[in-house]
Amino acid sequence: MADPIITARNVNIFYGAAQAIFDVDLDILPNKVTALIGPSGCGKSTFLRAINRMNDLIPICRIEGDLKIAGQDIYSPSVDVVALRAQVGMVFQKPNPFPKSIFENVAYGLKIHKLTSSKTELQDRVEWSLKSAGLWSEVADRLNQPGNSLSGGQQQRLCIARAIAVEPKVILMDEPCSALDPIATAVVEELIDNLRKDYTIVIVTHSMQQAARISQRTAFFHLGTLVEFGDTKTVFTTPADERTQNYITGRIG
């Protein structure tokens, strides 16, 4: 088994005086889809957003413990959060394309990080990203139209294309399909499975079926603690902890 790319040790996260995450130890393996599941308010999103330090935006949010990506403590003072986020992309619950053209949406990350040296290279990279996101055939002839003219599922794939354009190591997804219809969800799920070859994906989802379908590893959070973490098949067939069993079978726990 490959070495974990993300390692969390004794991670505690606080919102002011309230503690949201208690002593979480978690190893996320590269080129695998890791699903974080659990009831609302269990801290799974908080933990996800700690991985690319999006929690920094919340002034009262405080994190303790060790959270390393590829061996580097991402909360060390020497880490530049901009560089971190360039390597750890994120896709949000609601598709949030920028109010710009489809092309500009994908090109934005490349432009700010100056990842391309010429206009043709930029165009190639945008095309490559859109192809990787399985969107190219649908938008190739209308790259200059606004990103929000696309359907919800296409918008979400555009956001994924935008995230992979800068070739991050890790892609975090915060309930990426919760606003999509089943067909669009299936397309995004297929995409996630394809992306696994090149990226490490951590996904928060409320759909147990989705977690079971697309992830190889599943972590169950409950009341801010990591209750169970293991192979998805094991977690969904023979969970070790009764809380996990109660949650995934829809019982009053």
């Binding site: 560089a83 990080h113 935008r162």
Partner: peptide, 15 residues
Amino acid sequence: VPPSFREGALALGAS
């Protein structure tokens, strides 16, 4: 302005 634009840009590594 929806905070999602801000988040989206920050998550891409925009300052």
